[in-house]
Computed example of a mutant assay.
Amino acid sequence: MRLKFAAGDLTIHRIVEQETTFLPAHDMLPGLTPDVLAENRGWMQATGALDDSDTLILAFQSYVVKTPHHTILIDSCIGNDKPRPARPKWNMKTDDNYLRSLASAGFSVADIDYVMCTHLHVDHVGWNTRLENGRWVPTFPNARYVFDKAEFDYWTESNAKAEVPPFVDSVLPVVEAKRSEIVGHDFAIGDHARILPTPGHTPGHVAFAFGRGKDAAVFSGDLMHSPIQTHYPELSAKFDVDQTQAAKTRRGFLERYCDTDTLCCPAHFPSPSIGKIRRKGNGFVCETV
């Protein structure tokens, strides 16, 4: 399993918490027809994206990007000790996979300067906090946590109507600890990290582009969950709040980076996850590097 990549003056590390079966393909991607799945089953199974029962295999991972000036963690996966009864593999987890993966890459929690969240879903904010003496505290004590304002406002409003547990245990404690930065789309970290709005999966979903003077790497979050969505950008996931917008955003993103040298780093593609976008017919492919 390849875990380390280079792009310009960046070093990118995959921090894998889980890589496992998730949902049946037809359940996860409501627009996926039996014929399209049949046409693509062979390569999806060969690349580890689909198992023998047509269940999608996803990675749940963070990326740590080392720039000349900062160490930046993108999305923080599932977390430990969090009540997630709807997802047995995530519920009240106590394993050391995540912190061990971080240490294997050469980082401690104190080394992280920024935590940047593409959006605030449960499997992208879990390690924002950890349980300490019965309280949720920021896992990365020296980091500033970056939340897109539209995304933060959306979940603030949702949580006011009915409690959203991941927001309560993995986002609000960071805000209360005064470690957060609620930012607009003009936010940047030096000349190396920028926000790219990618709405659809959630209203405030963003990608992050990294590189000095060009996009050497882009981190796409949940803009797409499975490699088949590059071949068929119109296939939106059932979790996309606005499936039509998500499909439009996905195609625009793929067109933007098609046939460039930009490394595309999706949140959930199975190992090795990272690739370069190339055109294929009316769709695209993320060619692994």
Rank of each mutant, 00 (worst) to 15 (best):
M1G: 10
R2G: 04
L3K: 08
A7I: 11
L10W: 15
L10C: 15
I12A: 13
H13D: 14
E17A: 05
E19S: 09
T20L: 09
P30N: 06
L32I: 14
L32P: 12
L32S: 09
P34D: 04
V36F: 01
V36N: 07
L37M: 05
N40C: 02
R41P: 06
R41A: 14
M44Y: 10
Q45E: 15
Q45L: 12
G48C: 08
G48Q: 04
G48R: 11
D51M: 06
A59H: 13
F60S: 02
S62Q: 11
Y63G: 06
Y63M: 09
V64H: 03
V64A: 08
K66E: 15
K66A: 12
P68I: 12
I72W: 03
G79R: 06
P83R: 09
P83H: 06
R84E: 10
A86Q: 02
R87D: 10
W90Y: 12
W90K: 02
M92H: 10
K93S: 14
T94I: 15
D95C: 13
R100L: 08
R100A: 10
A103E: 06
A103P: 01
A105Y: 05
A105N: 04
G106C: 09
A110Q: 00
D111C: 01
D113K: 02
Y114S: 07
M116C: 09
M116A: 08
M116K: 00
C117N: 15
T118W: 01
H121N: 09
G126S: 03
W127L: 00
N128I: 01
T129W: 02
R130E: 07
L131T: 14
E132M: 00
R135E: 11
V137G: 01
T139K: 00
F140V: 03
A143L: 11
R144L: 04
D148M: 03
K149A: 10
A150L: 04
E151Y: 01
F152G: 09
F152E: 05
F152L: 13
F152Q: 08
F152V: 10
Y154F: 15
Y154C: 04
W155S: 05
T156K: 11
E157I: 11
S158Q: 14
S158I: 11
N159T: 07
A160E: 04
E163K: 12
V164T: 15
V164W: 11
P166E: 08
P166F: 03
F167G: 04
V168G: 01
S170Y: 00
S170R: 07
V171G: 07
V171I: 11
V171E: 05
P173D: 02
A177R: 01
E181M: 15
I182T: 11
V183L: 08
A188E: 06
I189Q: 03
H192E: 15
A193T: 14
T198M: 12
T198F: 02
V206P: 14
V206D: 14
A207H: 10
F208S: 03
A209K: 07
D215Q: 07
A217Y: 05
A217S: 05
H225W: 15
S226P: 00
T230L: 07
T230H: 05
A237Q: 05
D240C: 09
T244I: 04
T249Y: 05
G252K: 05
G252C: 02
E255H: 08
E255L: 09
D259N: 14
T262C: 11
L263K: 11
L263F: 13
C265F: 08
F269H: 11
P270I: 14
S273Y: 14
I277T: 15
R278N: 01
R278W: 03
G281S: 03
G281V: 05
F284Y: 15
